[in-house]
Amino acid sequence: MFRGTLKRFCKRYLKVIMGSFGSFRYGESLIGILFVTPVVLYFLIFLLYPALGALYYSFTEWNMRTRPIWVGLWNYKHLLFDRIKYPYFWHSLGVTAKYTGIAMPLSFVTALVLALLINAVKRGQDFFKVAFYLPVITAGAAVATMWRWIYDPLYGLLNIGLKAVGLQPQRWLGEPRMIIPALAIISAWQCGFAMIVFLAGLASIPSRLYEAAEIDGAGAWQKFRYIMLPMLKPTTFFLLVTGLIAAFQVFDIVYVLFRTGGGTIGGPGQAGLTYVLSLFDHAFRYYEMGVACAMSFILFVIILIVTYLQFRFVPQSYE
């Protein structure tokens, strides 16, 4: 069924390649196409084909063990409107939106501040880079153990601190309303990747620019405002787009924190049941792969719209 599209696609590109032997411009095109060919081939085989397959499954009822049964838009319709069959669909979407709304800005700012701090000191940069990156490297089980302790209602570091300054201790991982902020704090703590990308971005800023600014008498703030920020635009854009995609698909943190012998759950009151966690449950706990695929494509459309808006309204480069 996808063959027609594929054929048309191939024909068009063949034409470009054949035509490119003529002028210099086409020669450039040919090289460009050659350069992206491995990536595109990979994309066709390991991304596009599976995506089309998943799209097909989203229109079927499929438990992965028997042949898929075509059900048309049933999965989509019931996910969106049937609150008995899929009671947590909108809930998990809300959880994810809330998580994204809190975790994204928090880890973004943390990463930038950490990168600027490291960039601002002369000695020990290597040490701090390693130290701040360790949360990404540390085994998930160790991370979960430490954070469960920090958030522990009786012995936890956080509550001991709150009590010490005379505040009311909280049930961080027990009370539904506290769970998303608690998760967001962990994600900000694990911002090492964004931090090193910012560092790489800062490293790519030619030192002449600073020198020129210093001659003009610019202070630290002016240098940040008029050199670093504009020069970091491509980096920032990348981190915004991918950070949002990652936040929408958050799974690991919750899985490690709330996973129990009885299977995957979203914590008390399902307050930590993120969209992809719920999707995972539908796929591999309830064996509703068709529903899981439909959920994937609903999320896909949401992310696509948000990303489109980002491409449309967020500047991609400083030029």
Binding site: G174, G261, G262, G263, I265, P268, G269, Q270
Partner: peptide, 20 residues
């Protein structure tokens, strides 16, 4: 003394695990 009468393994009281 912070002594409770009855607890659940892994601390979870609701959800699928609690139901089991």
């Amino acid at each position: 003394k912070q002594i409770a009468a009855f607890g659940f393994s892994w601390g979870h009281y609701g959800g699928g695990w609690g139901a089991w």
